[in-house]
């Protein structure tokens, strides 16, 4: 029996009186591409931040490779935040060196190739790039790691449709085999084809956690249609 790389057990998070996540439990197995779907405010970012160890749960637990978020889980988790987190005053090669310094699984050659494809000058400062380029660069760094779990928060967030293809291709080409990938997005149509399973959140609760093929077969709808159906106003 394969071991789950990721487990959430009764995970809850409250911000003051507001409940962002409510008793969420699920497991993710290696080798799976999981779409974390839900409208804005459904708890996607909170779930990923809890998993990355940037938030502490109000109740329940997260286990990554059997451990709660900490130094051990951070060495095997590659996390792409929903915002630009690279220091704007740093240069491209400074940031690459920083990743290489801190992450043992960082593939310098891979990263250099990807950044060269983006036509980035190693001495360019992050702050002088366009927002789209910054996001692509951040994704390249995230995907240059041979992690066991990738947590990608809205990788398609602020980029134009042309760049979406680039981003999805980068993810598909570079995640290490046997790793699990969690992609949060509300652009269901764009990611539908690449997902094994979907975890749909609604108001902080798991509405569905299913294999995408299964769900399509049962509902007779594409995942995108299903999503719209569930969340129609």
């Amino acid at each position: 029996m394969m071991q789950a790389i990721y487990q959430a057990k009764g995970l809850s998070k409250q911000y003051g009186h507001k409940t962002a996540l409510d008793n969420v439990s699920f497991e993710i197995f290696p080798g799976r591409l999981v779409g974390l779907l839900g409208p804005n405010g459904s708890g996607k970012t909170t779930l990923l931040k809890l998993s990355a160890g940037l938030l502490r749960p109000s109740a329940g637990h997260v286990f990554i490779g059997g451990q709660e978020p900490g130094v051990a889980t951070k060495t095997i988790t590659s996390y792409l935040p929903d915002r630009m987190a690279l220091p704007v005053e740093m240069r491209v090669d400074d940031v690459v060196n920083l990743f290489a310094d801190f992450y043992k699984d960082f593939d310098m050659v891979k990263a250099s190739h990807m950044l060269a494809d983006l036509k980035l000058d190693p001495r360019q400062r992050i702050g002088t790039m366009s927002k789209g380029t910054q996001e692509k660069m951040e994704l390249c760094l995230t995907m240059s790691r041979a992690a066991r779990l990738y947590l990608l928060d809205e990788p398609l967030g602020g980029v134009d449709p042309a760049a979406r293809e680039y981003i999805l291709n980068t993810i598909l080409r570079n995640y290490s085999e046997e790793a699990a990938v969690v992609i949060s997005t509300h652009l269901v149509e764009d990611v539908e084809r690449m997902l094994d399973e979907t975890l749909i959140l609604k108001e902080g609760q798991v509405l569905a956690h299913r294999a995408v093929d299964e769900l399509r077969e049962e509902s007779g709808m594409s995942l995108d249609e299903y999503f719209r159906h569930v969340f129609r106003v």
Binding site: G53, L54, T77, R83, A85, L86, P87
Partner: peptide, 13 residues
């Protein structure tokens, strides 16, 4: 704040 997203993702206590 913002910078924590990078720093607290690093495998450091």
């Amino acid at each position: 704040g913002e910078q924590g997203y990078l720093m607290f993702s690093l495998p450091a206590a």
